[in-house]
């Protein structure tokens, strides 16, 4: 029995690593008396998995985990009990029973982000629309991906254009941040981090963005069914 559960990760808690999250949930299950299933073997651990971990420092309204229960618990009760123990920044918002078909990680293939940033060059909102159309006219944008292969570091060039669903400019918010909305590939079939997008934009368009001050929030995730982008079932 699997509860597919959506949760938030906002505020300071965006700094928790994937491992921190696993530890937090492990304890919360125990504290909240959730009838979670344990793995067999020497060192039994609770059976749950978090899909598509976020980079450190990214907020999210759309984190997902699959929780395997040993016996039935009503999803409402599950959410209520968990939320009592969880910190404010991490709260479960939705949970439903699913048949286990595919893992979360293999299902999630698009993420919708809100990206907020400051720029020394763009003042007027129109300036950005202009930059964006220039960006859209580029047929290819390569970035360098670094990977560790054993002890060696390998670099490869990657065209990120196919990894971008769409980018729209939302104007300035009340804290004077420019706001972008971006749908980016995320998961096993290709992954583009919002910060990589911003680095590439900065390089191509010279927007004078303070890259240390880019605020990113994941708003939603989607699955790709034969080329169609769909809500996660």
């Amino acid at each position: 029995m699997i509860l597919r559960t959506r949760f938030t990760k906002v505020g300071y808690l965006k700094y928790l690593s994937h491992l921190d999250m696993v530890r937090l949930f492990t304890r919360t299950f125990s504290k909240a008396g959730i009838p979670i299933k344990f793995s067999e073997g020497y060192n039994p651990h609770p059976k749950f998995s978090i899909g598509n971990p976020l980079p450190l420092g990214t907020e999210s309204l759309a984190e997902y985990m699959d929780v395997e229960l040993a016996y039935w618990m009503d999803p409402e009760t599950f959410i209520e009990r968990m939320n009592k123990s969880l910190p404010q920044g991490i709260q479960l918002i939705e949970s439903k029973m699913v048949e286990k078909r595919a893992s979360l990680t293999s299902m999630i293939s698009w993420s919708h982000y809100e990206i907020r940033f400051m720029s020394d060059k763009l003042d007027e909102e129109d300036d950005f629309e202009e930059a964006l159309s220039k960006w859209n006219s580029l047929s290819q944008v390569n970035i360098t991906k670094k990977r560790k292969k054993g002890k060696k570091k390998v670099e490869r060039q990657l065209d990120i254009k196919p990894l971008i669903g769409n980018i729209t400019y939302k104007g300035k918010d009340n804290e004077d941040f420019h706001v972008l909305s971006a749908l980016l590939k995320s998961g096993e079939s290709g992954n583009l981090k919002p910060i990589e997008l911003m680095e590439a934009m900065e390089r191509e368009l010279d927007l004078k963005v303070d890259l240390d001050m880019v605020m990113i929030k994941r708003l939603d995730v989607f699955t790709d069914e034969d080329g169609e982008i769909k809500e996660l079932a």
Binding site: D20, K31, P87
Partner: peptide, 15 residues
């Protein structure tokens, strides 16, 4: 801010 292990500084732990 670029620091290693930021959860050292955020607090808000359980209890």
């Amino acid at each position: 801010m670029k620091v290693e292990k930021p959860s050292r500084y955020i607090g808000m732990e359980q209890n």
